[in-house]
Design a protein around this nucleic acid. Sequence first.
DNA 1: CTAAATTCGCTCAAAATCAATCATTTCTAG
DNA 2: CTAGAAATGATTGATTTTGAGCGAATTTAG
Lengths: 257, 257
Amino acid sequence: MKEYRHRQILAILEQRPAVYAQELATMLQASVSTIRRDLQELQTAGQLRRVHGGAFGEIDGETEFGLRLCARRQAKQAICRAVAEHIDSGMVLFIDGGTTTELLIPLLVNKVDLTIVTCGLNIALHLTRYPYLNTILLGGEVHAKSRTVVGMLPTSQLESFNMRFDVSLISTAGISAEHGATNRMIERLALKKKAIANSTHSYLLCDSSKVGCTYLGQVAPLSQFRACFVDDAVTLEQKKNLQKAGNMVFVPLVEKP
Amino acid sequence: MKEYRHRQILAILEQRPAVYAQELATMLQASVSTIRRDLQELQTAGQLRRVHGGAFGEIDGETEFGLRLCARRQAKQAICRAVAEHIDSGMVLFIDGGTTTELLIPLLVNKVDLTIVTCGLNIALHLTRYPYLNTILLGGEVHAKSRTVVGMLPTSQLESFNMRFDVSLISTAGISAEHGATNRMIERLALKKKAIANSTHSYLLCDSSKVGCTYLGQVAPLSQFRACFVDDAVTLEQKKNLQKAGNMVFVPLVEKP
DNA sequence: CTAAATTCGCTCAAAATCAATCATTTCTAG
DNA sequence: CTAGAAATGATTGATTTTGAGCGAATTTAG
């Protein structure tokens, strides 16, 4: 079963950057010769890069779509853990695109019968791991850098089907007491606004590096969110300011035992 | 008892990705010859994919999440090379989802100012590597196994914006002279049909393992395509038959020097 | 820099699997 | 019951896959 091994190898390389040939031989119960042949073939197929001793997974430096490495991962994960508690089985969710919300997906394992609408390709892809969830990806122009769908189409799709959500999870580029949640890309504003308008409750997800930042357009004032989740790596003054503007939840970075 | 064995085999493949022929022989108390025959038949019926040593459960490249490898890659790549010659800069394309069309994307590097509409998440993701191309992803329910958008929404989106294409590239699960291009998933038919109807020219992409296979619903008769690209690993008789039904292009597997 | 230890690319032979064929058994229609 | 069709299991030669051996190349340690 050559192909089966090939798949195993690629699956392993999705989870970590490199493997030794020796190691693969042990794991897959095959001789080193065979593994070498496999790696050779996979390289010819452009699926990995061979090096002395083993192989690297990402082709020409671009990480494929496993979990992308993102900045402030720990903070974002803590935020997601807090948000996940507000999501119950059976809900209809809107999940915004971006790296923050991406980390939420694995935390939805235990919920059943969720319907999730999103504009993030990465979100949609991660959701395919859980085939019992119902995922709807909005259509539109693909924005390469953020791997999200942007432009007029996604918003118009929300409108034309008049989609209603129990909860919408919104991410943002900047958050401040005065200007609320703001974003640099105008094209995204309409979608976020529409999602909030069509939701019973909205939550804002935002890591502390974005506190105090203001960008071109306002998504919504903080008071419009049922809760705004920010990790607690912020000054006391910032906390107080934000708390005046909306219902803030400051998530501790270290997990409590 | 044949029927019974077939069902057993398929049931097993529902629970795990692959089985050995040998193993099946023991489990079902039949000779290896019989099992081989069973697997052969089930493959022709499109229920599984035969490999040296056994069989895989998923068919026509509907691989699990995270597996970048697809079957018959060489054939598909040859087909894509041939197809790429028919695509010129400035065109508006519809590209179907699936692993075959996925391999086409890197071959579009040299074209400029393309607009590409697709229902494949993998297609859209690959296209993000080429930010100078304009990509529009159709929205709708996400089909986990194939990483495509299915259901009513993508088709309705084509309709509501009345999108017109210069060329549409259609992939299919089965191809035969009598029944044309056929597909197992009814939900996909509407989209493929609509795309063909809205295109000046349509091309069919199909590797030779699918020749002679017929599935539930017809996408279109072969005569409706400007050309049908199949790799030439088919018998002379099959070639002749297909050529009567449509304009076939049999792509040689080995590259000419 | 040198020497030891790995790893590599290659070849070759053993093992497993395959496609095709054929005799035997089982089923079915009349 | 019988003749023909279908299914099964065994055989055979070809093909594919696999694992081990060996000298060359690469990496690591001293």
